[in-house]
Simulated assay, not measured.
Amino acid sequence: MDVVIIGAGIGGLALANGLVADGHRVRVLERAPGPRTDGAAVTIFGNGAAAAAGLGVPLDGLGGDVETLEFRTQDGRPFARADLRVARRHTGFGVATVPRAAILERFAGALPAQTVRYGCAVSDPRVGPEGVTVAGESADVLVGADGYRSVVRRAVLDGAPAIRNGWVSWQGLTRSLPELAGDVHARCLVGPAGLCGLMPAGAGLLQWWFDVPASPPDDGAVLAWLRTRFASYAEPVGELLAGLDESDVQPYPHVLHRVPARWGTGPATLLGDAAHAFPPSQAQGANQALEDAWLLRRALGTPGDPATALRRYERIRSRRVRRISRLAASEVTNLPPGPLTRLAGRLLTPALTGRLHLATIRQCSSVLNDDRP
């Protein structure tokens, strides 16, 4: 089968590896002039790690392992703690924070030469009953893995853009707070100003972000604005902000797509944010893209009409991803804890909290449930 994938992000490159291993002819068209090195890090949970391994590109050895995740109030008092080692015991895969560029490098490096074509912007993909035409070339199947502003989504589904909900993550990946960066414990401080997250990302790097429901002043002085906004938060928030430069801070707007049961038409479909962009508050964006790639590979490996296989893939994944999309859209983890949250934090052990978190992930996982299209 001849497959064209639009977008050389995590999901697109992961899918390409799985399809190449199955003997398909694969072309990945990417508008960027070269491999992407922008972006900070992503947290890979057991479902994403299992999907990557199932696609033939395991993420072993990348990033920094995360064994515990602790939530604290703005004054530094803990109110919830999760033991993430539960994931490894139950799935065989742990939790790690991995620089996005490192994942892309591994995925692209595992592909045959010339599989990825950089500097190839696609503006008008055409889909017919018997195949697709992209950039003047024909193919049997088209996969849009080109992000929440997807050209393919507009062509095969609808023109409705992903909607911003007002929240923005101001994030970065730097050599900051070496004691925390070299540890296996992650920390989030949440209060009226928003949430500050701190996660070790390996090799002395720290992934940090500030989730806020407001916009900085028009003068572009984002760092000064963050320092003022989070001035009342306990250390090490102030120490982190004091050591950053303006160029360290990157915006990541929180957007949300409607997640329909059908993601395409004929021999065309979508993957990752092109199908179901949602806020990063549950850290499942990259994991769900890997889940999509894992199940889509299975679907295209079944005999019969590719379009029929794509619709089966979409029905299964849409049911799974709607659950995590709704939870992420609530931004619940970015809000100060209420009385019930504090009570649950006192009653639940870290191990039980870890098991509850894994149960939530399992509900939105195709790979952990061995879904078959």
Rank of each mutant, 00 (worst) to 15 (best):
V4I: 13
V4D: 05
L15R: 03
A16G: 05
A16S: 09
N17T: 10
A21D: 12
G23V: 02
R31Q: 15
A32W: 10
R36P: 11
D38R: 14
V42R: 03
F45P: 05
A53F: 11
G63I: 01
G64E: 00
V66K: 10
L69F: 15
A82F: 08
D83A: 07
D83E: 08
R88T: 05
T91K: 03
T91A: 09
T91N: 03
P99F: 02
R100H: 08
E105Q: 15
R106A: 07
A108F: 04
Q114C: 14
T115V: 11
V116A: 02
D124Q: 13
P125K: 09
V132F: 12
V132G: 05
T133E: 15
A135Y: 06
A135I: 02
S138L: 03
S138P: 12
A139Q: 05
V143I: 14
V143W: 11
G144C: 08
G144Y: 06
A145Y: 00
R149T: 04
S150C: 04
V151G: 02
V156F: 07
D158H: 14
G166A: 13
W167Y: 15
V168K: 03
G172T: 04
R175A: 10
L177G: 02
P178C: 01
D183C: 13
V184M: 10
H185P: 04
H185G: 05
H185Y: 04
L189N: 04
V190Y: 04
G191M: 10
G194L: 00
C196D: 07
G197F: 15
L198T: 12
A203S: 15
W208Y: 12
W209R: 12
P213S: 02
D218M: 06
D219R: 09
D219S: 11
A221S: 14
V222S: 08
L223G: 10
L223V: 01
W225G: 07
R227H: 11
F230D: 01
A231T: 06
Y233W: 08
A234C: 06
E239M: 08
E239W: 02
L240M: 08
A242T: 15
A242G: 14
S247V: 04
S247K: 08
D248P: 09
V249A: 04
Q250T: 14
H254L: 14
V255F: 09
L256N: 06
P260N: 07
G264F: 14
A268Q: 08
G272V: 03
G272F: 11
G272H: 06
A274T: 00
A274M: 07
A275C: 09
A277Y: 06
P280M: 07
S281E: 09
N287A: 12
A293M: 07
W294L: 00
R297K: 01
R298N: 01
G301M: 06
P303F: 12
P303A: 10
G304Y: 09
T308L: 09
A309F: 05
Y313D: 00
E314H: 04
E314V: 00
E314M: 06
R315A: 15
R319G: 10
V321I: 14
R323K: 13
R323D: 08
I324A: 10
A328W: 11
T333D: 06
T341G: 11
R342T: 06
G345K: 02
R346A: 13
L348H: 02
L348I: 12
T349S: 15
A351C: 09
L352G: 03
T353R: 09
G354P: 02
L356M: 11
L358R: 04
S366E: 01
S366K: 00
D371E: 03
